[in-house]
Simulated assay, not measured.
Amino acid sequence: MKAAAFKEVGGPEVLRLVELPAPEPGQAEVLSRVAYAGLNCGEVQHRLGDFGAPEGETVTGLEASGTVRRSVRA
């Protein structure tokens, strides 16, 4: 899957497109196909360093909408 991510503090220029393994849903979770994703204020603050430097690759777009592809019941 493709994702926008950053691993250093900075402006929008530190964001880059990365390829990640497709996630697998666990118990009581769903796998969704994201149609739209947004960066919230906290993600922007993290990228700017307000919460310290990121520890490794940090994927953005925690607010998202799309369709459920698969679910695993509890």
Rank of each mutant, 00 (worst) to 15 (best):
M1A: 13
K2Y: 08
A3M: 03
A3I: 05
A3K: 00
A3T: 05
A3E: 06
A3Y: 01
A5V: 05
K7T: 07
V9S: 05
G10W: 00
G10Y: 01
G11E: 01
P12V: 09
E13V: 00
E13G: 04
E13A: 05
V14T: 09
V14I: 10
V14C: 13
L15F: 04
L15M: 14
L15Y: 03
R16L: 00
L20H: 02
L20W: 06
P21E: 11
A22V: 04
P23N: 15
E24R: 15
P25R: 04
P25F: 04
P25Y: 03
P25V: 05
G26Q: 13
G26L: 10
Q27Y: 01
A28F: 10
E29I: 06
E29D: 12
E29L: 02
E29K: 03
V30K: 13
L31Y: 09
S32L: 15
R33M: 05
V34R: 02
A35H: 14
Y36A: 10
Y36F: 14
A37C: 14
G38E: 12
G38P: 09
L39I: 14
N40M: 03
N40L: 10
N40T: 12
C41K: 08
G42T: 15
G42L: 14
G42I: 14
V44W: 08
V44I: 14
Q45Y: 09
R47S: 00
L48G: 10
L48I: 03
G49R: 00
D50V: 07
D50L: 09
D50K: 11
F51Y: 13
G52Q: 03
A53F: 00
P54K: 08
G56M: 02
G56V: 02
E57Y: 05
E57P: 01
T58C: 04
V59W: 06
T60V: 15
G61F: 04
G61V: 03
G61H: 05
G61Y: 09
L62K: 10
L62P: 01
A64H: 06
A64P: 01
A64M: 12
A64K: 02
A64S: 08
S65G: 08
T67F: 15
V68R: 09
R69W: 12
V72A: 15
R73P: 09
R73E: 14
R73H: 10
A74W: 08
